[in-house]
Simulated scan of single mutants.
Amino acid sequence: MKTNALNALLAVSLMFGGAWICSDASAAPRQNASTVTTTKVYAPGSAESSSIYAWIRDKSPEYAPVVTGTEISVTTTTVSSDKATVAALPSPPVPLPTSGTPGQTITIISTFANGGFESWTYTWNSRSAGGGSWALSGYEYKKGNLNIQ
C-alpha cells in the first residue's frame, strides 16, 4: 500500500514538475540589452548652454531655469538590444534631440557657483502610432550656500 501511495505521489510530482519545466522552457527568450551613458560638460555662457536652456524652456516651461550662465552637464542614457545602435551613439548632442528611443533619458544639471544646482531629467515616451515626446520625469533645485542675487 505504501508503494502505491509513493508511486502516486511521485507521479503527481513529476507531472507538476514536468508542467513547470515545460512552461519555463516556453517562456519568451530574454533580450541582451546594453546601457550606454554619456556625459558632456558645457561652459557657462557658451552657445551650447544657451541652446540647452532654450530646450528646457520649450519642453517644460513651468520648470524654466532659475539661474542661467552656469556650467551645465548633460547626461544621456540609452538602453538598446541593438549593439550597432548603441556603438554608434554620440555624446549628448547640442542642440538636444527632438526625438529619442523608448526609455532614453536626458539629465541636465546646472551647477551654481555657490554650491547649489538645478537638475531636470527627461524620458522619451513613445506613442503606439509612432513618434513620441520628451517628458519631464524629474526636477530638483538646491539653493546653495549663498543668496543668489
Rank of each mutant, 00 (worst) to 15 (best):
81 S>L: 09
136 L>M: 05
79 V>C: 01
145 N>R: 12
90 P>V: 00
93 P>M: 07
23 S>P: 06
58 D>H: 09
43 A>P: 08
59 K>F: 05
130 G>H: 03
36 V>P: 04
83 K>Q: 12
148 I>V: 13
21 I>Q: 12
55 W>D: 00
77 T>C: 02
139 Y>T: 03
36 V>G: 04
51 S>E: 08
123 T>W: 06
94 V>R: 01
66 V>W: 01
20 W>L: 14
131 G>D: 06
139 Y>H: 05
68 T>N: 06
86 V>R: 06
63 Y>P: 07
41 V>G: 10
4 N>C: 03
118 E>V: 03
29 P>S: 13
44 P>Q: 09
53 Y>S: 02
146 L>R: 09
21 I>Y: 14
130 G>Q: 02
98 T>W: 14
39 T>E: 10
127 R>W: 14
24 D>E: 15
54 A>H: 09
98 T>C: 09
35 T>N: 12
144 G>Q: 02
101 T>G: 14
6 L>G: 02
62 E>L: 15
4 N>I: 12
144 G>R: 06
6 L>W: 08
121 T>F: 04
146 L>F: 10
67 V>T: 07
6 L>E: 01
30 R>V: 15
76 T>Q: 10
54 A>Y: 08
5 A>H: 10
148 I>Y: 09
28 A>E: 14
16 F>M: 11
130 G>Y: 02
84 A>L: 12
86 V>I: 11
120 W>M: 05
36 V>I: 11
143 K>R: 15
97 P>C: 03
119 S>Q: 13
19 A>W: 08
67 V>I: 10
97 P>G: 03
57 R>L: 09
131 G>W: 02
142 K>W: 08
91 S>Q: 13
59 K>T: 05
129 A>E: 14
141 Y>L: 08
34 S>M: 13
17 G>N: 03
86 V>P: 01
124 W>P: 06
86 V>F: 04
6 L>N: 05
116 G>T: 05
135 A>W: 08
128 S>T: 10
